[in-house]
Computed example of a mutant assay.
Amino acid sequence: MQLNKFTDYALRILMYVAQPRDLPYTIAELAERLEVSQNHAMKIVHFMAKQNWLITTRGKGGGVRLNPDTLKRQLGQIVRILQRDNQIVECNDPPCVLRYGCGLKGILDQAMEQFYASLDQYILGDVIQPVQGHFSLQSPINLINL
């Protein structure tokens, strides 16, 4: 399973703006710090504001803040919405000649659900650890160096 760029950048933005500070974050700052184009950052922030994950304010002193309730959202729920029903395989477009006798799609769909179920064990707040005014992203899952 590979996250699309929209999901990847959206998760980065959520984690970045989760760090509390007095002033709201700006699109320009997010784009620069996360190395995303301003247009792409604006599109993602707009989408997440419509989901009520972010609070946006226009005008002088405006910007982007995290809705505190978003920290309690399950990661699987967030990723499902961001991925927008992105399927691992598409059997109908173009039509696959094997689709009627193939069991692969069902297995892959089950694996995708297990992926989301695994993410649902965590909330956004679990992956954010403030460190002396800066942030580090620390996963509750131990990583293995190969």
Rank of each mutant, 00 (worst) to 15 (best):
S136W: 04
R12N: 10
A41K: 06
L30K: 06
H134Y: 08
D22R: 14
L23T: 15
G62P: 04
L34F: 04
M42H: 14
N142W: 06
M1N: 01
R73I: 11
D85S: 12
V89M: 12
G133L: 02
G101I: 14
Q74G: 13
N145F: 12
I88T: 04
Q19P: 07
Q121I: 00
P20I: 01
Y100G: 05
V97P: 02
M112Q: 14
Q19L: 15
A28M: 07
I141R: 05
P140W: 00
S136Q: 13
T70A: 11
I123T: 10
Q19H: 15
A49R: 11
G133I: 03
M112W: 07
N145D: 08
S136T: 10
D85T: 04
K43W: 02
E113C: 03
K72Q: 12
C96A: 03
K50E: 14
Q121S: 03
Q19T: 14
C96G: 04
I128Q: 03
I78L: 14
A111H: 12
D69Q: 10
Q38I: 09
R65P: 02
L108N: 07
L71I: 05
I88H: 00
A117S: 13
E35T: 10
E29W: 01
C102N: 05
L119K: 01
Q2G: 06
L143T: 04
L143D: 02
Y116S: 01
A111E: 13
N67A: 12
I141Y: 01
L75F: 01
L82M: 06
H40R: 13
R84L: 07
N142Y: 09
